[in-house]
Every structure is written in structure tokens, then in C-alpha cells.
Design a protein around this nucleic acid. Structure first.
Lengths: 359, 359
DNA sequence: GTGAAAGCGCTAACAG
DNA sequence: CTGTTAGCGCTTTCAC
């Protein structure tokens, strides 16, 4: 290796040993001065530091990790960093992590179990001190087992995996969905669709387990609110797997015909965007002919005409709290696992009105 | 360490040595079988592999890096992962990196030189094989020097730093800005503001060096187009530092009074959003009373009413190409540094019209 | 095809 | 306060 590396890297990077001999002290002393641990006399420290930057010394964090067992790195695996939700949560986590002296290794799972498993394997191999994951599945925990087995702390965010019993940070999705739906019900709607892109090949059945806990909770909140309004078979209004058909295509289907819905609860802002577009294409006026509410206060929901009423989630905080919990564990906390449920809050805009008579 | 780690991690993770003795072979042989290098007989390999998963062996990537000098990790430092531009570029980079077997360490610089310097230091300490950076400054290269000195490949994206002479991937911002501005000019506008949040304490002067090369190029394209239209002192229409005052506040100022502009070129979609909001608050109709164009095809520009005409950038590709270039270097390419300039493309929507007579 | 031993750069006892 | 000596877990000559 040394040859190739030398060819690639120009000269070999200087090490503690180099600095030590340059400063005329032992390796241990140099290491102590450089690593800022143990005790070194000021004179020697200065000499070592001087030698160090004369040589352009840069510590090798990996070597340090090898001997200390701590990498000061945490891994985060998200569905897709391009998704505004994950971008914000990641930022929240990164900020907390950095403040505590940790770096972040990022992986995208694409919500795919196999990809997720591989990502987790890599992170573990890199000996991260702990892992933050938005699990691809809430009901299948096999992917996460290796991190438990490794003994490294794991904190889940956005998605809960109950059977694992680990620290988790989620939003109050059930009550959020209930409130959002109730808003529509109170406006007089009864034919309301809930739309999510969660992969789900078959029609949704009552009290079925869903792969994504936030979607599951939202579905519950939604059906609860409908049931409370006296709607029979509310589960028939739940439409999952929207990605397969295409959100806009599905939306067009839901919004037309004799049994068209008069309102839609979008499980996230991307779904809402598809519905919004479909409505526009169909020439349906929001809110006069269609009421629309969604989760997440995305940019576009604020400037669209009309503004979209949304249930905003404290996304930054979800990431930040998850990181805080993780770091506490890394520092050795032995408290029982907790689940933090953060409140969502309603932002009322102009996308809800009474259902129109002529539909 | 061993005690504490043992306490934290449950049992110690098994190592090549453990697997070796479990399989009854030497450490070297076990390592060869596990690491898939050198030559091992099939029989032995099977025995080793069996032993390995009996023990739940997981390779220690750090130890491997220590001896091989390669970490299979690349670092990426962006301004802010929450910014859609960086999120997309990061995703593009992550995808090609993963395909090539590399992982990503992510840092946010917040466009702050000091933060950036620290982030780069950390990445270097972690011995990334190469670095992808959207430099906080295009004219001050000190932060990047350490990576050059380290001998590790560096690829810049979005922001060029000419004096460094390293591989760079950028978009054709100058022509993009020219085309966008020309659109306004051709519609009859002469009083057009260019607005950016680029930190810049003083009023913009002609041919001044700017910290951000994309903004610099856009400003050039903008002033060129104005000059070509016979506008004198086009630089007077360049408004930087919009964050300090607040985009909306600045926009309100630009849009009112006797010398109000009739059109705005927004340097990014966040700026455009601020202008859009300001216009709405002022009750100005777009495009009748104000024409607005912007860079980046953000979600909201598609669903806002009216749709915003934008210059779309191939953001994924910027990240992906940067990663490709970097990986080629990591693999040892010695070609002269190249600068890849990717085309932008215009998406015409409804936010441009002739200036209204009554303003 | 397999094994023994050295070494990557650092930290951590343990002496002095 | 400083130096010596072992490792951390892996790869890599070099013999056999």
C-alpha cells in the first residue's frame, strides 16, 4: 500500500511519531499534547504544537477510534434526503450532533428494506457510536436487530417499531389526523379520502397493520374521526399505494364520477401537491368544489392559491430530540427506553369550505 | 477502555482472530476468506464463513482503513442540507457514491468560513478518500488548502474557486441569467431588480468580485442583458445581502415608490418566494403589475398562481457528476483538472408580462 | 494454499 | 510530568 498511497497522496501524512521526534519528546508525550489529555508541561506542549504545525500534522481520527473505541460519529439513515421532511430532520440532528462533537454519516434507504439493511451494515462496520434511523418498516424489525446486537445505541425517529423497545421520537400523528379530518367533517364533508403513497398492494382493511407507523396512526385518526361523524366503513375511504398508480391519476379517479369525494386528507405534502395539480387539471376550484388538507407545512402550501390548511410537524425538533436521546445513550445513560411524542399544530388557511351542492 | 466498552456494548464484538480460532485456521487465512482477497481453498473458506456468522462477526471497516489507507468514504460539505438545492445535489452524489461502494459523511457549513474549515478538518481527520465541497467562498481558498495539502482529491460543485485549479462542476449561470433577463427585457421591462441573499455589506459595484461564483455569474449575465438593452448603470439594479434586511422587506422597498421596479430576477427560489409574498401583501398582481423570474424549479413555483417562469438547474446531475469526477480521481486519474459546465433550461410559465402603464 | 509476524497511527496503563 | 510498552483489528509481505 505505502507505495501507491505515497504516489496518490504526495508525501505521507505526518504522524504523532514524526511530531514527537521533531519536538524531541516521546511519542506518548506528543500524543498527550496533541490529543489534549493526560498532563504535559506548558513548555513541552508549546514545543510539540510548534513541531506539529511545522509538519502540517493532522490527527488520524480512525487510529484514535481504534484505540478508544469511540468514533464520535453517529449514523443516520433516512428514506430520502431529498424529501423535505428528512432534510429538516437531518439538519436538526446534525446541529445537535455537531454541538456535542459528533459527525454524521448519512445513508438513504429509499424505504427499501434491503437497502436499509445494507446501509446499517456499513454504518456498523464504520463503528458509529450510535444510530439514528427512520425505519423502512414499523412491523418488521430484522434490519435493526444487528444494531441492537452490536450493543450500540439506536434511536428511531418518525417511525416507531414497538417490538424493539428502543428510544423513539415521533409526532402525534393520530390526533393530528383526527383534528384535520374533524375540520372537514365540521365543514359538512362526509365523503373524504385519505391518500398516502405508502406501498401497500391490496385495499386497506380495517385494523390492518401498516408498514409505516405514522401512516398507520394517521389512518386511525382519520377513520376515528369519520366513524365519530357517523360514516360507515370509513376504511373504504383510505387509499394507500398511491405511488404505484401515480398520485395524480389516483386523485383524478377519486375526484370524478358519481361517488367522487368532496375532500381529501393528504398524508404528506407531496401527495397534496399531486392532488392539488389534479384538481387544477380537472378545473375543480379549491375550496369551493374540493377541500384539501395535508400534513407538513411545505413552502408551496403557503403560496398556492388558495393557501392549504396543514398540520405542521416539528420536524427539526424530531431530528434534534432523536439526536439528543442518542447522545445521552452514547454517554452511557441506562434509563428505560422512552418514546417522545411531539405535538403537531394546525395552520388554518383557505383550502377548506363546505362541500358544494352540485357534486 | 475494554471494561467500559464491554459494559456498554454487551459482549465484545468478535474479530478476525476469534473467527480464525473458531474455524481452526490462522488469522491471515480467516482474514483472506472474510475480506475476499488473496487465495483460500473453498473448503477453508466455507469453514471460515460458517464460523463467522456463528459468531456474528462484523468486519471493522476502520481497522481495514488503517492498514489499507482507503476508507471507501467520501466527505461532502454543503451550505445547508435543508436547502433543496443541496439536498438534491447530495442525493445525486450519494447515489453514484453508493453504486461505487462509497459512503458519505455529510457536513453543513452554513456558508460560514469558520464552520467550513472545521468541517473539512474533521473529514480529513476521518481520512475520507476524497472531498466534495460547495465552497463557502469562491475567492478565498484558504479553507480548501488543507485538503490539497493532504493529497486527497477534491471536487468543487456549484461554486468555482478558479485559483485552486481543481475539478469543478457548475451550471451555466451566466447564460441562464442572461436568458432570464432577456425574457423580461423583451417583454418591455427596463427597471428590473436582481435580488440575492449573498452576504455583501456594501452596495454592489461594477465588476466587483463576489464571494459566490454562481451569484457572480448571474449578476454578470443580468447586467450584460440590461446593458445590451441600453440600460445605463445596470449594476444599480443589483441587490445583494437581502438576508440582512429580510427578503420581503427589501422586496417591498423595491416594489413601491416612484422608482419601483417592474420586474425581478430572483437568484434562487427562496428569494423568489419572499418576493412573491411581498407582492401578494402589497396587492400587486403577477404578472400584470410585476413580472417575476427565478432560478430553480422549486415545487412552489409550479403551483403558485400564476406559475413562476424559472431557469431550472440539473441539480442531481451536478452532485452526481461531481461524485463521478471525484471517484475517478480516487481511482488514480491524473488527467488535468476539468470544469464541467452543465446547461440550465428555461421553463416558461405565467409570471412574465409587459410592464403595466400605471406603475 | 496457509501461517507467522510486522505494521497502520493512536491511546492507555504502568513505571519512573 | 515524561517515557516505555502494549495493544485496537485488520492487511500484507515473506516463508513454508
Amino acid at each position: 500500500m505505502s507505495e501507491e498511497a505515497a504516489a496518490t497522496n504526495g508525501r505521507r501524512e505526518s504522524t504523532v511519531a514524526d511530531v514527537a521526534s521533531e519536538a524531541g519528546v516521546s511519542k506518548a508525550t506528543a500524543a498527550r499534547a496533541l490529543g489534549d489529555y493526560g498532563a504535559v508541561s506548558d513548555a513541552v506542549r508549546d514545543r510539540v504544537v510548534a513541531a506539529a504545525d511545522r509538519l502540517g500534522y493532522r490527527p488520524n481520527a480512525l487510529a484514535r477510534t481504534m484505540s478508544t473505541g469511540r468514533s464520535n460519529t453517529i449514523g443516520i439513515v433516512v428514506g430520502d434526503i431529498e424529501n423535505m421532511f428528512f432534510a429538516k430532520a437531518t439538519r436538526g440532528a446534525a446541529d445537535v450532533a455537531n454541538d456535542a462533537g459528533f459527525d454524521l454519516i448519512l445513508s438513504n434507504s429509499d424505504e427499501d428494506g434491503a437497502v436499509e439493511a445494507k446501509a446499517i451494515g456499513v454504518q456498523l462496520a464504520k463503528r458509529v457510536d450510535g444510530l439514528l434511523v427512520a425505519a423502512a418498516s414499523s412491523i418488521e424489525s430484522a434490519n435493526l436487530r444487528p444494531v441492537i446486537d452490536s450493543g450500540r445505541p439506536l434511536v428511531l425517529f418518525d417511525r416507531a417499531v414497538p417490538e424493539l423497545g428502543v428510544d423513539t421520537v415521533i409526532a402525534a400523528n393520530r390526533s393530528g389526523a383526527r383534528d384535520l379530518t374533524r375540520l372537514l367533517v365540521e365543514a359538512g364533508h362526509r365523503r373524504i379520502a385519505f391518500v398516502s403513497t405508502l406501498a401497500h398492494p391490496t385495499a386497506f382493511q380495517r385494523s390492518e397493520l401498516l408498514y409505516s407507523s405514522p401512516v398507520a396512526e394517521r389512518v386511525e385518526g382519520f377513520t376515528d374521526a369519520l366513524a365519530a361523524a357517523g360514516v360507515s366503513r370509513p376504511e373504504a375511504f383510505v387509499h394507500l399505494n398511491a405511488r404505484a398508480e401515480g398520485v395524480e391519476v389516483l386523485a383524478r379517479r377519486l375526484l370524478t364520477g358519481s361517488d367522487a369525494v368532496t375532500a381529501v386528507v393528504a398524508s404528506d405534502s407531496l401527495v397534496a401537491l399531486g392532488v392539488f395539480r389534479a384538481a387544477r387539471e380537472l378545473g375543480l376550484q379549491i375550496p369551493r368544489e374540493l377541500s384539501l388538507v395535508a400534513f407538513d407545512n411545505a413552502d408551496w402550501t403557503q403560496v398556492a392559491t388558495p393557501g392549504i390548511t396543514v398540520m405542521a410537524q416539528p420536524i427539526h425538533e424530531i431530528g434534534a430530540e432523536a439526536a439528543r436521546l442518542l447522545i445521552r445513550r452514547i454517554r452511557g445513560s441506562k434509563e428505560p427506553a422512552t418514546t417522545l411524542v411531539l405535538d403537531q399544530h394546525l395552520i388554518v388557511r383557505e383550502s377548506v369550505a363546505a362541500p358544494s351542492r352540485d357534486r
